[in-house]
Amino acid sequence: MKRISFIIVFSCIGLIATAQYNKGVVLETILKTDTTSIGQKIVYPSFAKDEVSIVKVTLPPGKSTGWHKHFFPVFAYVLQGTLTVEVENKKTLQFPVNSSFSEVINTLHNGVNNGNEDVVLIAFFMGEKDKPLSVH
């Protein structure tokens, strides 16, 4: 009985999501979260001039972003390679191709390419107009 209820609930959710668009349009959730990759609660800051930036980042083999932090939510999708993220608390995270993640907020971190091919990702910065995307 529980399995049937579970199937009915998820079928209804799927119908609601698909009903938002014309027949034949497929929605595939890439990431749905309320926390960062290290479990921080995502909170949108209140800015005077909100601005979203979508950036393609290419990190060659052996290179890193350098230690930096963001003061607002940033989301990323890995198109190619495997990104290693070192976090200031000595934690290391791995994000392979076709994975997505919510970056850490107000926490120093460093993106590293330890592989033999470029790491390519698309990053979505939920920032403020005329302000930097990150701070070293």
Rank of each mutant, 00 (worst) to 15 (best):
T35A: 06
L79S: 04
T35D: 04
T29A: 15
G39Y: 11
S64M: 06
T29R: 13
E86W: 13
A19N: 12
V74N: 03
K41Q: 11
N114W: 05
S46D: 07
D50R: 07
L79H: 12
I13F: 15
V25Q: 11
V119R: 08
K56L: 07
T36V: 05
D130T: 06
G115K: 01
T84G: 02
S5W: 06
I122L: 15
I54T: 11
V104H: 06
G127E: 05
N113Q: 02
V74A: 02
S37A: 13
G39T: 06
V119H: 08
T35E: 15
E117A: 10
V85H: 02
S46P: 01
K129C: 05
P132H: 12
H68Q: 14
V87H: 10
V112E: 07
V9S: 13
G81P: 05
S5I: 04
P61C: 03
Q20A: 15
N98A: 13
I122F: 07
V9C: 07
G81K: 04
P61R: 03
T92K: 14
T82G: 00
P73V: 02
L15D: 01
A123Y: 13
N116S: 15
E88M: 05
T29L: 12
K90A: 14
L108M: 13
M1E: 10
V9P: 00
G115A: 06
I42F: 09
H109Y: 03
W67R: 07
T82L: 01
Q40H: 01
T35C: 10
Q94Y: 12
V87C: 09
V85F: 04
L83K: 10
I7P: 03
L59Y: 07
D34A: 11
K56T: 07
E88C: 08
D130Y: 07
L15R: 02
H136D: 15
G66W: 14
L15E: 05
F6I: 08
F72Q: 11
T92I: 14
P132I: 06
F95D: 01
V78H: 05
L93I: 11
Q20C: 11
S100G: 01
G66D: 09
V26M: 09
S102L: 01
F95V: 02
K69P: 01
L133N: 05
S100L: 00
S53H: 03
S102H: 06
F95L: 10
F71L: 10
S11Q: 09
D34R: 05
N89F: 14
I42E: 08
T107A: 04
V87F: 14
V26K: 15
N110H: 08
T18I: 06
T107P: 06
F95M: 10
L83A: 13
T65E: 09
G62C: 07
T58L: 08
F101N: 02
K63A: 03
A17T: 02
A123K: 12
L133A: 11
S46Y: 02
T36Q: 07
